[in-house]
């Protein structure tokens, strides 16, 4: 009898993979968006299984509560208001196959060569404090660079939106 964590892992993994297929192959783009909802939620669940609670909740807030809702917002604006149906067609299939195969190979190499931390996770561990400390000490530079890049992207988007 495998333990409950293993069973849950396989359930969530199955959900993530199957709904990812729907995201890619669905003909109706709103189904892709709704399936992405399940995929992203499943990933958050996997983080919780790893006791990475902060990461899980950030995943939900940023990807599901932020990015995906903007995606759906965009889809709603275009398909229902301007009468232009978004068609989900596959372009450049051959290069796409090569790129995906390349990414797959890189992932496999990373998977096999990384020295994984396989210690059992600590129950009720508070990860937020340590993540915060690391972000403002060891990883301060990448953290600041990321925020500046995001700020520039924000300003650029605002500028383009103003132009017309």
């Amino acid at each position: 009898m495998p333990d409950i964590n293993t069973i849950l892992f396989y359930i969530f993994a199955f959900l993530i993979v199957s709904f990812s297929f729907i995201v890619v192959f669905a003909k109706n783009i709103i189904y892709s968006a709704v399936s992405l909802f399940v995929t992203l939620f499943g990933t958050a669940a996997l983080y919780i299984l790893l006791r990475a609670d902060f990461l899980a909740i950030t995943q939900v807030m940023v990807y599901i509560g932020g990015i995906l809702i903007l995606l759906i917002f965009g889809i709603m604006m275009t398909t229902r208001i301007t009468d232009s149906e978004i068609k989900t067609t596959n372009l450049s299939s051959v290069p796409a196959v090569f790129v995906s195969a390349g990414v797959f190979v890189i992932l496999i190499i990373v998977l096999l060569t990384t020295k994984w931390n396989i210690n059992p996770p600590v129950e009720n561990d508070v990860t937020v404090n340590r993540i915060g400390n690391l972000l403002l000490t060891t990883y301060l530079l990448p953290f600041e660079i990321a925020s500046v890049v995001l700020l520039i992207a924000l300003m650029g988007a605002a500028m383009y939106a103003r132009k017309k």
């Binding site: 909802f37 609670d53 902060f54 909740i57 950030t58 939900v60 807030m61 599901i64 509560g65 932020g66 809702i69 759906i72 009720n124 561990d125 508070v126 990860t127 937020v128």
Partner: peptide, 18 residues
């Protein structure tokens, strides 16, 4: 009793729009 109760609430609030 989760360690990140406040964030859980904010996350749920952000889902409410769906």
């Amino acid at each position: 009793d989760v360690n990140i109760g406040i964030l859980y609430i904010l996350a749920m609030v952000s889902l409410g729009v769906y």
